[in-house]
Design a protein around this nucleic acid. Structure first.
Lengths: 203, 203
DNA sequence: CGTCGGACTTGACACTGTCAACCACGCATG
DNA sequence: CATGCGTGGTTGACAGTGTCAAGTCCGACG
């Protein structure tokens, strides 16, 4: 009864979650919403527009989580650690969103700039945290080498966290744990090891 | 001409490379091979079987690259570094294979065990290298804590390398570089930073 | 020679995304 | 009040897809 637009979005997400991205079908979504097969089409124009909206909203929620971690108390390293865990946790709690967010071939970035902007917002939060953690060692103007080092640090941190997330939901890592507890403990150990390897004590 | 089976596989890979995974169509593949729409079906049974074969072959090639890095000269850290670079390089040189390899929803692992086995072979190479790098510090029987630490190290290394690869081919990292040289230099700096952060000098 | 099996074709089915036309109704304007 | 119109919805059609079923061709082998 509520807004059909919202119903379509949540049904799409549920469908992807249940049967994979390939099974996302406008007609099935319409069927679940108890409506004719063209009703969703009237709200979105193309299938791509639905996915674009999911991507945009997904990145926005991820950005909110990262920004929340940024605002917590504690040392920069602690907050960076929390943001990394938030990233992984997001992927585990919303795998359908996460998967769709990192399939750029699904939505044409030029036609749906909102998706890209939401992504940039999440990326910016990550950059700020890494910079705060590492950039303040030597004050003053950063040399080109220092800037490159910072870029490498950002990429390293993002890659590690993103790789962990994708391997947990799509890769074979997901099968190595019997329980969610076991998995979370392993994630925590890995993240702690990473933080402490890169010279930050987060405990 | 040559074996139709091979033609189907390479046409499929080319199609995915050109227009994305969603555009993979048995009929289009058949068209490109100049053959009726059921000819590929005769060789593979389902579309899934084609993808499963691509996954299996992809993992095999990846494993070969990692094993080649393992066999090179130099310190364990140097070889681990080479293996990481090989992982990223594989993703960049065969993006279609790489993408398909890490979409477990596409092939049912139980029905196509060969794919899983090829994946395990690649994983094993990674585990050996990380173990060699980190496991030999204290000789003797590993305690449970040491074993867990090693597991975390493997996950950390794998996540970092895998995340870097996926962000380069699917994420927004790919757009931040104008040339392949620039990109490769950044990858190299990031990997070096990672190796040296985790206590290994690879140079 | 016969037949038998593998490689391939043709034809059909249900399903998909999308286009087009049509319908009902609330609402502002003549 | 009547009229027009945009909004949210419908039904029907089309091409394209994966897949099933049956038919065709041809070379190997008894």
């Amino acid at each position: 009864m509520t807004d059909l637009r919202e119903q379509v979005l949540s049904a799409s997400l549920a469908l992807i979650e249940e049967e994979g991205l390939g099974a996302l079908s406008l007609r099935e979504v319409a069927r679940r919403a108890g409506v004719s097969h063209q009703a969703p089409y009237h709200h979105f124009g193309h299938k791509e527009a639905i996915v674009a909206e999911l991507v945009s909203r997904g990145f926005t929620r991820l950005a909110e989580r990262l920004e929340a971690a940024e605002r917590t108390r504690g040392t920069p390293a602690r907050r960076l650690m929390r943001s990394g865990l938030a990233y992984v946790d997001f992927a585990l709690s919303e795998p359908a969103s996460f998967r769709v967010m990192f399939r750029p071939e699904l939505v044409d970035g030029a036609r749906f700039p909102a998706s890209g902007e939401a992504g940039s917002r999440a990326y910016a939060a990550l950059v700020r945290l890494v910079t705060e953690c590492h950039g303040d060692r030597r004050a003053g103007k950063p040399t080109a080498a220092a800037r490159r080092r910072l870029e490498a640090l950002v990429t390293m941190h993002w890659s590690m966290v993103h790789g962990l997330a994708t391997l947990l939901i799509d890769g074979s890592l997901c099968q190595r744990f019997r329980t969610a507890r076991e998995r979370d403990a392993h994630v925590l150990r890995t993240m702690e090891l990473f933080m402490q390897s890169t010279g930050m004590r987060s405990d």
